[in-house]
Structure formats: structure tokens, C-alpha cells
Design a binder for these strands. Structure first.
Ligand code: FES
Ligand code: FES
Lengths: 144, 144
DNA sequence: CATAAATCGGACAAAACTATCCGATTAAAA
DNA sequence: TTTTAATCGGATAGTTTTGTCCGATTTATG
């Protein structure tokens, strides 16, 4: 569904959000440990998210990553997916035709578009804040 | 969503079904042309589908691929996807946790499982025969 | 039987994705 | 001011997916 990079990106952002809500800035190392991801690869993804203004990075000693508290509520999963995987999830044809277009649709177009829209809606309606909701109380997890 | 191999596999199977309904056996070359796919790669995928008893292959001169007419109505997209991509679409966690499990779910588990089930239902309920329905009359297409 | 037309199957090549390494840069703290 | 802890960014390596090549095999046909 999503690329590995995108999966790590969502998990990392969620962990950063969780800690930022309590005023804690977190280091790359801590993030990678808490979401069980390869450190250097996670660094690359966080650079990308930082450039896309999704997370804020602070260099130097006592630096790390954080997300502005006001942003946590406004940031939707769709923005993270957009930044990492682009729009290929939404835009592409389910059967790989060069374009997905209702004027010249593939045989699964109607059914596929419906499912894809559900996914899109879900991503656009889910905020980072919601993502953090169950974590502290052990209802949800970022690693297994 | 699906791998390229799976996309080609579904398109190829659909084209073979369409022609088989009219009693025509089709060659690899014709299939690749009609679905706009790389010939040699398509050959590999058809071998796999043949081993999985989804298409029937006939070697030698005047050989090619066909699908038993009775099978066309019974074969579902889910069987093709299973043969090529396995169960990773259904089984995996949307955020890449090692397992998708309601006992220790990721933050999107509930929403994700719902969408994934819709996709599963769609694949299990769509037969190859349905796939061919709009092709002859130009309502749907296998290439663009 | 000889030839031609087709799939089969193994090896190989290219591209994309995932992951690592390390020096450069930055900034807090001693 | 020096040290230390951190991100940045470019180069590189490994893995998977996608795609190609070609000889072997099979079978219809003349
Ligand atoms: S044309 Fe295939 S999904 Fe729209
Ligand atoms: S645990 Fe992540 S989708 Fe089920």
C-alpha cells in the first residue's frame, strides 16, 4: 500500500507528535528505537518531512525533532503521504493504465475509485493528534 | 496498490478471457500488444498463472493461452492477485508493523482494516467474466 | 521427417527502493 | 573557547522488482 519510507514517516511523525504534546523534543536515535526503524534511513525521511514543513528540526547539541503543538491538530496523514509517496496512490489506475480517467476507464475503474476515495477520505480526515490518542494508554502501538 | 506484475496479470487474464469467450486462443505476442505490456515480462507472469491453473497454455505451433469457458465465470480477481502478489495486500499492517493484529493494533488499524476488507470483497466478488463485459462495446479498456 | 511457430525456463541486466557510512555543519554546554 | 551532541547531505551498498535474452522444448503443418 504505502512505501516503507512512508510507513516509517507516519510512525515517526506520530511519535514526535506524541512527545511534542508533552513538550519533549526527541532525537533521531530515540525515534528510531521507539518505532523500530533503521536509524540512517529514518534520518533521510525526517529530512524530507522537515523540508516539507511537517516536522521541525533543531540542529546542534540538545537538538532533535518536534512538531508545533498547533500543527499537531491540523496535520493530516494525507500531507505526510503526499510528501513521501506523492500522489501515486490517489492518481494511478488500479490496473496500471497510463492514466486513470473515467472517459476511458479500465474494467475495475468504478469499483476501484470508490475504494481509493475511501482511503483518501481516511487520510485527509485523520490528524496526527488522533494518531497519538491511544498510544499513552496502551490501546495502540507504533512497534510490535 | 498492486505490483506491476499483478497489474499485467489481471489485464492479460482479462484479455485472454475475452478472446476465449469467442473461442479464440491467443499468443503471448498478441496479448502483450493488446494490453501494452513488455513481452518477455508478460511471458513470465503467464507462466506463473498457468502453474496456478488460472490460464491454460498450449505449446507448439498454433499454441498460446486460453481460459476454459466455464472457468471464466468462476475465476475471481482475488485468485489472480493471490497467485502473483500473495496475501500481503490483505495481511500486512498499513503502517508496517511486523504483524497486523487487533490485540496490539497500530493507530490506523480500525480504519485501515475496513478499507482493506472493502478491497478484498471487491476482488473476491469480481469475476473475469464481469471484467470482459464492457470491453467489446468500448465502455472499458485494457490499454490507454 | 523437416520446418516453423509457439511456450518454457534459466541466466542476466536495469531500475527502483531500502539501507548504511561518514565527513560537514550547527549549536548548546562546560 | 573547546568539547560534545546532534542534524545535514552526499556517496555508496544491498535488495527487490521489473524487464530482457536466448537456447531448449513442444507441436502443428507441409
Ligand atoms: S482507469 Fe483504471 S482505475 Fe481508473
Ligand atoms: S496493526 Fe496496523 S493495520 Fe492492523
Amino acid at each position: 500500500m504505502f512505501s516503507k519510507a512512508c510507513e516509517y514517516g507516519i510512525r515517526a511523525s506520530t511519535y514526535i507528535a506524541l512527545q511534542s504534546l508533552e513538550g519533549r523534543r526527541v532525537s533521531l536515535k530515540e525515534i528510531a528505537e521507539e518505532i523500530d526503524s533503521p536509524v540512517a534511513f529514518t534520518a533521510k525521511i525526517l529530512q524530507l518531512l522537515s523540508k516539507n514543513n511537517i516536522v521541525d528540526s533543531v540542529k546542534g547539541a540538545h537538538g532533535g525533532f518536534e512538531i508545533n503543538k498547533e500543527k499537531i491538530d491540523k496535520l493530516k496523514l494525507s500531507q505526510i503521504v503526499d510528501a513521501i509517496d506523492g500522489d501515486k496512490i490517489y492518481a494511478g489506475c488500479g490496473l496500471g493504465l497510463k492514466e486513470c480517467n473515467a472517459d476511458k476507464p479500465c474494467p475495475v475503474h468504478d469499483k476501484f475509485v470508490e475504494i481509493r476515495n475511501d482511503l483518501k477520505q481516511m487520510l485527509e480526515n485523520t490528524s496526527l493528534f488522533e494518531m497519538t490518542a491511544g498510544l499513552e494508554v496502551g490501546l495502540t502501538y507504533l512497534k510490535r
